[in-house]
Design a protein around this nucleic acid. Structure first.
Length: 507
DNA sequence: AGGTGGGTCAGGATTGACCCACCTTCTCCATCCG
């Protein structure tokens, strides 16, 4: 099989990028593969190309609707008609039509949530999948335990579909996360292909500030001077809005904010404007970034650091996809840790919330002969106990796993002691794990050794070659990243690399 | 969760006591409203 020929014929590329061919070869052999390829190296090709070789439909599990739509658009633009994103955007009629025969599609995109729909699974079974792809597979580990628990059911889905060849792809996974992905997907002897997470063109800089006033000041100063476009990450929605306002007031005109609390249309607009060069700076929460196709992002500033190094790596990885020199700049103040703590504590229901829900369940059970309507109870939990949706989803998932919730009924006459103990234990373990990750993040900030080496060390790699512009610990001048330096260098002294850049862009 | 920062008020001219707000990430589905 001449893979290069398929690559050229179908995708118009002359050669593979690092890792792509190896992954594709293993998949075509029918091996299960877990692969980590660095951000921005063309992961989607690893499953898109095999689809042309193996025939039969492939399923791609994707975390975001916008990512799915994006991929579908790109494939359609390339002339591929046999592609569908099976999600809530489909009308009732489109959905019925699709379910009748999924084997007419080459690519089927789906969220983990919709893979819980029995009708969809039945139809997928009939379609005889040839490949089961999990895109952004770190979500299994990052979200599957608490936030989007359907990610933790993907292994069951895979088994249920007859265990087709499985390909899990991600950009950032430690050994621990790789192991988590493997066990959750029930893969017994997967081929694990990992490539360096290092992005030599991104310089790393961490700056400790005296107080929040100074932090704001430093962000204003640096954003003003730095070569744009860029992203400013915050850990709260209110900060994204007030920072955007502040920047605007201080002369950065083309700035907007972005977070999960905004209207869908507004989010789409801001994202489009940024991608189309109509905005220079986006102040955002972690909601922004996954699947953003913009290669010339010059800086990523962390106004707040995330609660784990994996997220940090994902976020800085959005800079410099074009290979040009870019900057990851983090501002840090000790008080930031309060926010980190609240995020960790808030993510899971507290012991008292668990107890409150179970007590409520117990009381209801007595009144209604032990059988409670799930729908009704869900409403009550939200309205009377003020339990937020994420917390309830977590509890519900485990009640289902314990057989207390079956179909749309709660069998509350069953003893609740075991599930109570179990839930408390699970929460404690998760919170501990999160604090361990936060501790690593803190070490990264405070350590005096090279940032790049630390990052690589966390991924059990070592630095092969230190780039000229490495990090603040190795001596880095922020002035090198200011607005004028880049264009001067490219326009007058280095036309060769500019040409190469343009050629690469048109490719 | 919990520690903090800001606002208010009493009572007294500066400060303490007290309360409140803060606090990410996604999809699906059902229901309601226009």
């Amino acid at each position: 099989m001449n893979l290069e020929a398929v690559l050229f014929e179908r995708f118009g590329y002359r050669s593979f990028r690092e890792g792509q061919k190896e992954v594709i070869q293993e998949v075509l052999k029918g091996e299960h593969v877990i692969a980590t390829l660095p951000t921005g190296t063309g992961k989607s090709l690893c499953y898109q190309l095999p689809a042309y070789v193996i025939g039969g439909p492939i399923l791609i599990v994707s975390p975001l609707l916008s990512l799915m739509e994006d991929q579908v658009q790109q494939l359609k633009a390339r002339g591929e008609k046999r592609v569908i994103a099976f999600n809530s955007f489909l009308s009732e009629e489109e959905r019925r039509q699709a379910l009748r025969d999924l084997s007419v599609y080459r690519y089927i995109y789906a969220s983990p949530e919709i893979l819980q729909a029995p009708a969809f699974i039945q139809s997928l079974k009939r379609a005889k999948l040839r490949l089961f792809v999990v895109d952004e597979a770190h979500c299994i580990s990052q979200w599957g335990h608490d936030f989007r628990m359907d990610y933790s059911s993907l292994g069951d889905v895979w088994k249920n579909l007859g265990e087709p060849t499985c390909l899990a792809l991600t950009a950032t996974a430690t050994k621990e996360v790789l192991h988590d992905i493997q066990t959750q997907l029930y893969l017994e002897h997967p081929r694990i292909l990992t490539y360096s997470i290092d992005r030599p063109n991104i310089a790393l800089y961490v700056e400790q500030v005296e107080d929040m006033e100074q932090k704001k000041l430093r962000v204003l100063e640096t954003v003003k001077k730095l070569q744009k476009p860029g992203i400013v990450y915050c850990s709260s929605r209110t900060w994204t809005e007030s920072l955007a306002m502040l920047l605007k007031d201080h002369g950065t005109e083309r700035v907007a904010f972005y977070h999960g609390g905004m209207e869908h249309d507004q989010r789409l607009l801001v994202q489009q404007q940024f991608v189309n060069d109509q905005l220079d700076v986006i102040c955002c929460t972690s909601a922004f970034g996954m699947g953003i196709n913009k290669s010339d992002i010059r800086f990523v500033i962390h106004f707040h650091l995330p609660t784990q190094l994996e997220s940090y790596l994902q976020e800085i990885g959005r800079a410099g996809r074009d290979g040009e020199r870019s900057l990851a700049l983090a501002f840090y103040h000790a008080s930031d840790e309060d926010l980190s703590h609240s995020l960790i504590e808030l993510e899971l229901p507290s012991v008292s919330i668990i107890e409150e829900v179970l007590r409520y369940l117990h009381v209801h059970a007595r009144n209604e002969n032990g059988l409670i309507s799930l729908k009704e109870f869900e409403q009550n939990v939200a309205v009377y106990l003020h339990v937020n949706e994420t917390h309830w989803r977590f509890i519900k998932h485990h009640l289902q796993a314990h057989g207390i919730i079956r179909e749309s009924w709660i069998h509350a006459s069953m003893p609740l002691n075991d599930v109570h103990r179990y839930l408390v234990e699970v929460v404690q373990k998760r919170v501990e794990a999160k604090y361990r990750k936060l501790h690593v993040m803190k070490q990264f900030v405070h350590s005096s050794i090279c940032r790049r080496e630390q990052l690589l060390h966390y991924y059990e790699e070592s630095l092969v070659q230190r780039p000229d512009a490495c990090c603040d610990r190795c001596g880095l001048n922020l002035h090198d990243y200011e607005g004028t330096s880049r264009s001067v260098r490219l326009e007058f002294t280095d036309w060769k690399s500019e040409l190469a850049r343009l050629l690469k862009q048109s490719e």
